[in-house]
Each structure stands twice: as C-alpha cells, then as structure tokens.
Amino acid sequence: MVIDSTRMKSLADRLAVDEVKGRSLWADARKRFLKNKAAVGGLIVLLLVLVFAAFGGTIAQYSNEELDFSIMGQIAEKGGPSLANGHYFGTDDLGRDLFARTVQGTQISLAVGIVGSAIAVLVGTFYGAFAGYVGGRTDNIMMRTVDILMSIPYMFVLILLLVVFGRSIIMLFVGIGLISWLDMSRIVRGQTLSLKHKEFIEAAEATGVSRLIIIRRHIVPNLLGVVAVYATLLVPLMILTESFISFLGLGVQEPLTSWGALISEGSGTLNYGTYWQLAFPLFFFVITLFAFFFVGDGLRDALDPKDR
C-alpha cells in the first residue's frame, strides 16, 4: 500500500543496525523488586511452601486417612513428632499422621486463597474497568450494585450458604468468589477513571480503536500493577476467611482438611499436652501469611516507585 520504494534503499542501510531492546516498566519493576530483601525472602518462603504442598505427599509415610492403631489412645505419650516411626509432625487426636494432614491442609488453603484471588482479578478487573471506562449511567448502576452487595454482611451469607447447601469445597469456592471481587472492582474503577482522560486514550479514540480494544490494550495493562499488588494481598485474606470458617466448623469436610480446621483441632486438644497438633499447622499458616504480605509490599514498592 503506502510503502515508498525509493526510500527503501537508504532505509535498508539503517536497518542493518540491530534493533535495540527496550527496557519496559515491568523490567524496571522486576529490578526494584529483586533489590528488596524482605520481598525476595517472602517469595522464597512461598516457593518452599508451594513445594511442600506439591511434593510433601511423596515423603509422607502414611496417608492422611489412615489411623495408626499402635498409637491410638496414647497420643500424648507416643504421638509426638518422631523420625523413627515416620510421623514427622506427630499424629492428631485420632492417630492420623499430622504430616500428611498438614500437606493436605496446605493444598486446600492455598487453593482457596489463589482461586478466590483469581476470581477477584478476573471479574473485578473487567467489571471495574468496564464501569469506569464506559461511565455515565452504566457506571452508576454497576457500582451501586457493588455497594449493595458490599453492605450485606458476607460472613453471615457465607455461613448461610454452607448451612443451606451443605458443606463442600465447591460451596466454599463459590461463597468466597462471590465476595472477593467487590473491593477489586472498586479499586480498578477508580484507577480507570484517572486513566480515562489521559491523552493516549484520547489518541486511540481519535484513531477509531473500538472500546473493548481500548480497555484491553490501553487500560488493563496500565492497571495490572495495582491489580497484582492487591491480588497478592488478597490471597492471605482469603486464607484467613477460609480458616475462620473452618475454625467455626463449617469449612471443608472430613476427611479433607485445611489450616483452619487443623488449627481448630490442635487448639482443642492443647490441654492434653499435644502442642505439636497446634504448632505445625500454625507455623505454616503464619509463615505463608507473612510471606504473602512481604511479597505484596515489595510489589507495591516496585511497581509504584512514586508512592513511597
């Protein structure tokens, strides 16, 4: 079409020079993140916890459902952590291997946290970006809906859901997914409003780029920093919510377990001298939450250097 062939020759000489690689804002952020020791430490801890959740089952000597009859009835004396009998973290009150159960609890808790956060990222980002970009009446209706949903006490709804539809892991995902995206959509909408009047958006509109492509190509990439930070900080909140529900006895159902359920059981039997039943699940719970918060903080500092 519009390619001018006479200029091609002079152009060819200049093209012989190799293309310079650009330094994107993401690359800058990565560099800043890697300089932050607490954040990198948090990331390493998270990776270790993930490895524990993924491959812990292959090290375990017992399955999480098996009762060890040789220990049953004498948990306080014989059920403690021991390398000799293969119960690395000891056993629970019924003589089940606590190592295997902690591995499973970690899997479930991380899954709940990550699924909840992923729903928030997907639904919240597009909902918020759409409402903010389109604006006007659409925005009003969409955001008032969010306000109404937010004003409902979610713990009450979650408990009702689990009571009415029965306790199941699917119901837990549904319940957490329903509430997690509300805050995210508000944050994203606010950011979108400030982006909307930037000249590069106007330039795209003037050229005739369609609305959906503007949202996808121009708005969402510029929101991802905020979204990444908030998503990282949302995972521990989701884990806490799930743990609280499980602590109340409404969360995941036996033989499945989660950190909340394990901590609940462990704290119940603390008086009988079986401290390990609380200590091991609690240890994983605490380091994971700390690690997520450190990584989230690190991401925020890395992605928005003006914010400090």
Partner: peptide
C-alpha cells in the same frame, strides 16, 4: 512501514522496541 515512518520523522528505526 513503522520503521519507514520512524526514519521519516528523524528517529532511529532500530529503537522500535524501546518504551
């Protein structure tokens, strides 16, 4: 076409991947 235009407005075409 983009490189041709960059050359036309006085930018080095090898900077095409910069931000």
């Amino acid at each position: 076409r983009v490189k041709e235009l960059m050359d036309r407005v006085g930018l080095l075409p090898n900077q095409i991947n910069r931000y």
